[in-house]
Design a protein around this nucleic acid. Structure first.
Length: 423
DNA sequence: TCTGGGGTCCTAGGACCC
DNA sequence: TCTGGGGTCCTAGGACCC
């Protein structure tokens, strides 16, 4: 506890205190919580190999000690660990556990940002009356363990990047503090590939510049890394120096950017009927999820992967927002027929992008139906009616939507709207 | 019988407009 | 007569993460 107190005093007056909570081998741990008989055994969650989905999604630490890793094909995992216990994923369970976990986090701060099903950030800068950061972290960890029987690791730091990095440092059931002044000792010795945001490709590019460690990245030449990695290179350099201004945003999960489903076919096929009926099923799933989230979208994208894993995407922006299965299928089918080269297909996907909330879309539709009757009327009449109905802000918003072709015929003349906007 | 499925963000070229 | 520069939108692909 002494450590926590002294740490507290080292945060600058206006500095933040961010926690990153990361559940340890989440799916496997949830299965163990449901069936304690699995505890202490090598356990893996994996799909059905008969459907060619037999890759390791998550595995217990016991399985990891045999060398079993995420995304490893099942047969390979079994070769490494013949006694491996395999369970199919049970997403309802994982969602329920996730809900419980976030409910606990929200007891400590309103500023909780879920990042994925099993990890999230908390801004506890203003939670000091509950305790020191270390006390809060350890209370959260205990509560998740005692109430849900699930292990987690927690990072404590002045920003998201460092908190995320810290939570990775001690697993399972670790709590790690990463202050700015710890960076040279704790972050800089790591190879760049260990950094969140640096994958294989980026690591290769950095290595080719002679940058192997986080320290070398932190001290890299701006012009050089920008020329090779663009703006992302500069951002990575900032992070390596411990700078990250991103806020903890509890609402970020509500701004969906896309909703999609994809599936690997049991066998590669050229049977068009089969492919189209798969696309139809994917459209049904996507449509259902759009409905649940109360959103519609204006871009439909399909994905086709062949046996060499070569993947293409084809998309189309449409005028009227879609969400219905049938509409979605018409667009997807069209994209498929026009772009499929006839080769055997391994995977198909359907995604809807450029999402808008359903009520917002209806608002825009209303506005445009109003407008189309108004088309023949003098301009000042139209504008005053729109003013009456929505106020100036809404007109602007509606017209912006229109410029994107959201809900109107793209052949319509939109010039008077644009001129109106140009004050 | 090697490599799932859900996402986000960024880049880059071409079309089009002023 | 022969061609600038800024900006946005659309589309495709790539990198990365869990």
């Amino acid at each position: 506890m002494k450590d926590a107190v002294s740490m507290n005093s080292h945060y600058p007056k206006n500095g933040r205190v961010i926690l990153h909570v990361d559940m340890n081998s989440f799916y496997a741990s949830v299965e163990m919580a449901y069936d304690p008989g699995l505890k202490g055994k090598p356990l893996a969650i994996a799909g059905n190999p008969k459907e060619r989905k037999g890759i390791i999604v998550t595995c217990s630490y016991e399985a990891r000690s045999f060398g079993v890793k995420t995304t490893m094909p099942l047969w390979e995992a079994k070769k490494l660990c013949p006694n491996l216990i395999i369970k199919p994923p049970n997403f309802d369970r994982y969602r329920a556990a996730s809900k419980g976990m976030f409910a606990i986090l929200r007891q400590y701060s309103d500023l909780v940002e879920p990042v994925s099903i099993d990890e999230g950030y908390l801004d506890i800068t203003d939670s000091f009356e509950i305790g020191t950061p270390l006390e809060i972290a350890s209370s959260i960890q205990n509560q998740i363990k005692s109430q849900l029987d699930l292990p987690c690791s927690i990072g404590i730091a002045p920003n998201k990047f460092l908190a995320k990095t810290a939570s990775d440092m001690k697993k399972p059931m670790g709590i790690t503090i990463l202050r700015k002044r710890d960076i040279p000792a704790k972050l800089w010795p790591l190879p760049v590939i260990e950094m969140h945001g640096v994958g294989l490709k980026t690591a290769e590019k950095l290595n080719s510049l002679g940058i192997k460690t986080c320290k070398e990245l932190a001290q890299a030449n701006d012009i050089q890394i920008k020329s090779v990695l663009g703006i992302n290179g500069l951002r990575l350099k900032e992070r390596a120096n411990g700078t990250d201004r991103r806020i903890v945003d509890p609402d970020s999960i509500y701004d969906y950017k896309s909703v999609g489903n994809s599936t690997t076919l049991p066998k590669d096929t050229t049977n068009q009927n089969e492919l189209l009926s798969t696309i139809d099923r994917l459209c049904a799933k996507v449509s259902e999820r759009l409905n649940q989230k109360d959103v519609v979208g204006t871009t439909v994208q399909i994905m086709i992967r062949d046996k060499f894993r070569k993947t293409i995407t084809r998309s189309r922006k449409i005028e009227n927002p879609v969400m219905k299965r049938e509409d979605l299928f018409l667009y997807s089918k069209d994209l498929f027929i026009k772009n499929w080269n006839g080769d055997p297909v391994r995977l198909l996907g359907v995604t809807v992008q450029d999402l808008i909330e359903k009520n917002e879309a209806t608002e825009q539709l209303d506005l445009f139906s109003y407008e189309s009757t108004a088309k023949q009327e003098p301009l000042f009449n139209v504008l005053s009616k729109l003013h009456e109905k929505f106020g100036k802000g809404s007109i602007t918003k509606g017209i912006r939507g229109k410029e994107k072709g959201t809900a109107c015929d793209s052949n319509q003349d939109t010039s008077f709207n644009k001129d109106f906007l140009r004050d």
